[in-house]
Design a protein around this nucleic acid. Structure first.
Lengths: 214, 214
DNA sequence: TTGAAACCTGAATCAGTATTCATGTTACGG
DNA sequence: CCGTAACATGAATACTGATTCAGGTTTCAA
């Protein structure tokens, strides 16, 4: 665990952060329970009672730490986003070039999503509860991504082009591939998937477009 | 209670289809109102009262034609999917090859989404109301798509590869590009977007991977 | 023209559930 | 050891909103 984030950055923070070790523990339990419950039941079907039951506390305790169900979702989206980014950065740190980083990134994303299926549901549902948090998530993700592509272009690893559009295309690929192969049908080998996408990114689809396989 | 029709094909069809011209008109008005209301307010925030108000009928009339709010969403997803597919088929019919069809298809999709923003919201929210309808939507879309890629491979237009994975990547691209550039920020020229994606599909990203621009 | 089926009405019902609050219980600095 | 702030409880509150229903109105085939 890293040190707790400064509360000043978060806008609508709850009724005050916990002041004792016990409170800290309880708050964490509730947040984890919310993640699981939203992840399996979905935001709307999940009741506060479901969350508190999963956390092993009374329903009123929820409001000691969170101002509302919606606020909890917001906090969850931010935290899950941070965790995913940290994971991806760790897993792509040793890539030799951008296209290798794309491969490692996609594989890491698939693995992460399979291990944390709640991420997908919480994030996608947040879109319709509070669109701004969803936009912020992808736009901040996209900004970093654009910078990485620009650097890769400078290094001569990829052709120059409209990197913003490319980034949204890339995020779309990960998203859909993840939904299909990490959440719905998990039997296909990640290696095959990554190889196919990598080939698409390196060479495109056109016949004779890139170097041949062998 | 009159003996209800027992339609064998469709499972949860409404309380019986309209039997007069007036009924037909009213049902259509309600369905259109539901599309608009779900599209702007979202499924959960939209009440039956909102829908019937928009349709100009009493709230009870809703249940003359639809068995539930959820059932209405299901019907809407199917109908909107049919309309989109018809549109895309029309717009890509005259493409000379697969990669040209991809260009025309993406442009047509963006245009359609900008003109029918409710499509996105209704479809994405349906995912969390009844996942099966959502899966069916993309899987049936995907199956046709795979067949088209296979045919294009036979014709030598694209390299052979794992077309299923490719199709999910392609659907992801359209989806995200559409969200960003047809719904959120509509000022970028579709031509730029299509050109960028087309270049990605034809040549990939790798430096020197494809034919140079000039 | 007529009567039965189809259609329309909107107030009432009814269940679910986020949030509050009055009342205990626990932690811990002094 | 206290005393007090922090924490925990769960029944009660307050409200929303989908669905029903008992009765009126319109349509249309005969």
């Amino acid at each position: 665990m890293t040190s707790p984030d400064s509360p000043s950055s978060i806008v609508g923070t709850a009724p005050g952060l916990p002041k004792t070790a016990r409170g800290e523990r309880t708050r964490t339990r509730i947040l984890k329970a919310a993640e699981e419950t939203f992840g399996t039941l979905g935001y709307h079907r999940a009741g506060i009672a479901d969350i508190t039951r999963a956390a092993g506390v009374a329903s009123g305790t929820f409001y000691t730490y969170f101002s509302s169900k919606e606020q909890t979702l917001r906090e969850l989206v931010q935290e899950m986003g941070r965790r995913l980014r940290a994971h991806l950065e760790r897993e792509t740190a040793d890539a030799g070039d951008r296209l290798e980083a794309e491969e490692k990134g996609l594989r890491a994303f698939l693995q992460y999503l399979r291990d944390n299926p709640a991420l997908y549901r919480v994030l996608q549902e947040a879109q319709f509860v509070d669109e701004s948090i969803y936009r912020r998530y992808y736009e901040s993700f996209g900004e970093r991504y654009v910078r990485m592509l620009a650097r890769a272009t400078d290094r001569g690893e990829i052709r120059s082009g409209n990197d913003e559009v490319r980034v949204w295309a890339l995020m779309g690929i990960s998203n859909f591939i993840g939904l299909r192969y990490a959440l719905w049908e998990t039997e296909m080998d990640f290696d095959d998937i990554v190889a196919t996408v990598s080939d698409l990114l390196r060479n495109g689809l056109a016949a004779g477009g890139g170097r041949e396989k062998s």
